[in-house]
Amino acid sequence: MLKLVGGTGIVRAARAAIIIPARFASSRFPGKPLVPLHGAEGAAKSLLQRSWEAARAVGGVAEIWIATDDDRIADTARRFGAQVVRTSADCANGTERCWSAICEAGIDADVIVNFQGDSPLTPPLAVELLIETLAAEPRVAVVTPMIRCSPLQIDRLTAEARLGRTGGTTVVFDGVGDALYFSKRVIPHTPERCSDAPIYFHLGVYAYTRAALAEYAKAAPSPLELVEGLEQLRFLHCGVPVRMVEISDPPGGLWEVNNPSDVVVVEAALAERRLV
């Protein structure tokens, strides 16, 4: 069983590293990290570069790495100036790839941020809040953000579900803010057109203590993790709380690129935020 590290994950002022896991072979969207996204002034940059630029805006981070097993992604990342670490092709998900990156690059950090390569809209302040939460609450070993969905966002998520596509991940949590379950379907179930439904969209960026990440890598994938395709369910299966931190929805929303149809939505948000 995965052991929760209490008070031993951060023993001094946290030194944080961001790792951006990136793989080419996505079943829903092959080559996704290299898809071009146009910014506010029409310039095209790859999804990978835009995610890396978002990560660079996070304050108080010692280093940023792109972790991949693919030559095309590695070459592209080096061209725009990123540090690259080659990881095992056997990594089952981004969390495992983060641990592989630590081992391969010798990354010495107390806090590891898994910054999703398909989430260029991630607010830097949200990542800083995750790091601060780990430092302030020694018994918390894993923390990740969420936003309460607006009626428009609920409509989009349910519409995607009806079409058999993944519009994003939702989460339900307990009274202290620890996740009860994550799903690629909309949870909880609510009546149609319920405008005040307590539906929370999970933004796929995580901060882990180094010790919690090491123990995750030792554990076998859980049945629900395999069914849902959600790596964080391994922590819940093993009894490790995942602390949810609510953040506000920034201009343009917090959409990820899960499917080709998401590109236009993310580009609209880039334009609204005036990101070039």
Results as ranks from 00 to 15, higher is better:
148 R>G: 12
149 C>F: 03
149 C>W: 02
150 S>N: 11
150 S>A: 06
153 Q>A: 00
153 Q>C: 02
153 Q>N: 00
154 I>A: 13
155 D>H: 08
156 R>I: 03
157 L>G: 05
157 L>P: 01
157 L>S: 04
158 T>L: 14
158 T>S: 13
159 A>G: 15
160 E>P: 00
160 E>F: 10
161 A>S: 13
162 R>D: 10
162 R>Q: 12
163 L>W: 07
164 G>L: 00
165 R>P: 06
165 R>T: 02
165 R>W: 02
166 T>S: 13
166 T>I: 11
168 G>K: 05
168 G>D: 02
168 G>W: 05
169 T>E: 00
170 T>I: 10
171 V>L: 07
171 V>P: 09
171 V>Y: 01
172 V>N: 04
175 G>M: 02
176 V>Q: 01
176 V>S: 10
177 G>P: 14
178 D>N: 06
178 D>G: 04
180 L>V: 15
180 L>C: 14
181 Y>R: 14
182 F>K: 00
182 F>G: 00
185 R>F: 00
185 R>L: 03
185 R>A: 06
185 R>T: 06
186 V>N: 11
189 H>Y: 08
191 P>S: 15
192 E>Q: 09
192 E>Y: 10
192 E>F: 07
193 R>E: 06
193 R>M: 11
193 R>N: 15
194 C>F: 08
195 S>P: 04
195 S>R: 15
197 A>G: 11
199 I>V: 07
200 Y>K: 02
200 Y>A: 04
200 Y>G: 03
200 Y>L: 00
201 F>L: 07
203 L>C: 07
204 G>C: 13
207 A>T: 05
207 A>Q: 04
207 A>E: 09
207 A>F: 04
210 R>S: 11
211 A>T: 12
211 A>M: 15
211 A>C: 07
212 A>P: 01
212 A>S: 13
214 A>E: 14
214 A>H: 01
214 A>N: 13
214 A>R: 08
216 Y>M: 05
217 A>D: 14
217 A>T: 14
218 K>F: 01
218 K>E: 06
219 A>K: 12
220 A>V: 10
225 E>C: 05
225 E>I: 02
227 V>P: 03
227 V>W: 04
229 G>W: 04
229 G>C: 06
230 L>I: 07
230 L>V: 02
231 E>A: 15
231 E>L: 02
232 Q>A: 14
233 L>W: 04
233 L>T: 05
236 L>V: 09
236 L>T: 01
238 C>Y: 14
238 C>L: 10
238 C>R: 13
238 C>H: 14
239 G>D: 12
240 V>L: 09
240 V>N: 03
241 P>N: 03
242 V>G: 10
243 R>Y: 01
244 M>F: 06
245 V>H: 08
245 V>E: 14
245 V>I: 11
245 V>D: 09
246 E>N: 13
246 E>Q: 12
248 S>G: 09
250 P>L: 04
250 P>Q: 06
251 P>L: 05
252 G>T: 08
253 G>M: 02
253 G>W: 00
254 L>I: 02
254 L>N: 01
254 L>V: 05
256 E>Q: 15
256 E>A: 06
258 N>K: 12
